[in-house]
Amino acid sequence: MPRSYQLLSTGLQSHLHGDKFIMTYRERITPWIVVRLLPHVQHLIIRRFHARANAQEYAKLLRRYATDSEFEVMFDCPMTAPTLSPPSDSPPV
């Protein structure tokens, strides 16, 4: 019988604004994520970390206790980089 466990939601929500992917401040400062791999090339974010080593140790712990699931450490970055452009009403330099 597989072990059951509850995933706690952290309340972190990225969202799309037009064609740009917007990350919250907390998501930007914690780019290393531990994910549970799901069928059909999907994943579920379990927890975020500042340091890669901390994420790897947490994934190791999850693998030990939840043997029926697969966990990986990933780097979560914005889909589009912010662009720096002058405002359209400013005079050319």
Rank of each mutant, 00 (worst) to 15 (best):
L16R: 12
H17V: 06
F75R: 11
E72P: 03
F49W: 07
Q56I: 13
A51P: 02
P31K: 02
L62T: 06
I22V: 14
S14Q: 09
W32H: 04
R28G: 00
I46C: 10
F21A: 04
F71E: 13
F49C: 08
H50R: 14
F75P: 04
A55V: 02
T10V: 04
F21L: 08
V41G: 07
L7C: 04
R63T: 03
V73C: 13
S14L: 03
R28H: 03
M23W: 00
L8W: 04
K60F: 06
L7P: 00
M74D: 06
I45A: 13
F49Q: 05
F49M: 08
T67R: 15
Q42D: 12
R26F: 06
F71N: 14
A66Y: 13
L61I: 06
Q13E: 10
L38Y: 05
S14M: 06
R26N: 11
N54S: 14
L37E: 15
H17T: 05
N54Y: 08
G18R: 07
R26T: 11
A53R: 10
H17E: 13
D68R: 07
I29W: 02
H15D: 00
E57K: 10
Q13F: 05
R36Y: 01
F75Y: 12
T24G: 08
R36W: 02
R64N: 09
S69P: 04
L62Q: 09
E57R: 13
E27L: 04
F21H: 15
Y58R: 11
P39E: 04
L8N: 06
L61W: 07
R36E: 09
K20S: 08
